[in-house]
C-alpha cells in the first residue's frame, strides 16, 4: 500500500511541470537587435574586431562574448588569487558555522 501511494505521488508530481508548460513557449521582453549594424569606420583594432563580428554574424558574436567573458574572468581570478596569496589572504576548506 505504501509503495502504491509513493508511486501515485511520483506520477502526479512528474505530471505537474508538463501541465504548467502546456500553454506554449514563453517570451521575454528583450529588444531584438538581430539585424542592427554598427559603425566600424575609425575604430581601434579590438573594437573593430568586435564590431565586425557583430555586423556579420550575431551567433559567432555571441560565442565570442561568452568565451571572452569566461577567459577574462578566469585570468583576473588567477591574478587576484596570486595577489591575495602574497598578502596572506589565501583560502582553503572552511568549517561551516551557523
Amino acid at each position: 500500500m505504501k509503495k502504491i501511494k509513493a508511486l501515485f505521488f511520483n506520477l502526479l508530481f512528474l505530471a505537474l511541470p508538463a501541465l504548467a508548460l502546456a500553454a506554449g513557449p514563453g517570451d521575454k521582453d528583450v529588444p531584438d537587435m538581430a539585424t542592427r549594424m554598427v559603425r566600424v569606420e575609425g575604430l581601434g583594432a579590438i573594437n573593430y574586431f568586435f564590431a565586425t563580428w557583430y555586423n556579420s554574424n550575431k551567433f559567432v558574436f555571441a560565442i565570442l562574448v561568452t568565451v571572452v567573458m569566461g577567459v577574462v574572468g578566469a585570468l583576473i581570478a588567477l591574478m587576484t588569487d596570486v595577489i591575495l596569496k602574497a598578502i596572506g589572504m589565501e583560502v582553503s576548506k572552511i568549517e561551516h558555522h551557523e
Binding site: V30, P31, D32, M33, A34, R36, I46, N47, F50, Y54, K58, F59, F61, A62, I63, L64, V65, T66, V68, M69
Partner: peptide, 14 residues
C-alpha cells in the same frame, strides 16, 4: 543569458 542576449545583439562586449 550571455549567449542568448549576444545572439539578439543586445550585449556591449567592451
Amino acid at each position: 543569458g550571455c549567449l542568448t542576449y549576444g545572439i539578439k545583439g543586445a550585449v556591449d562586449i567592451v
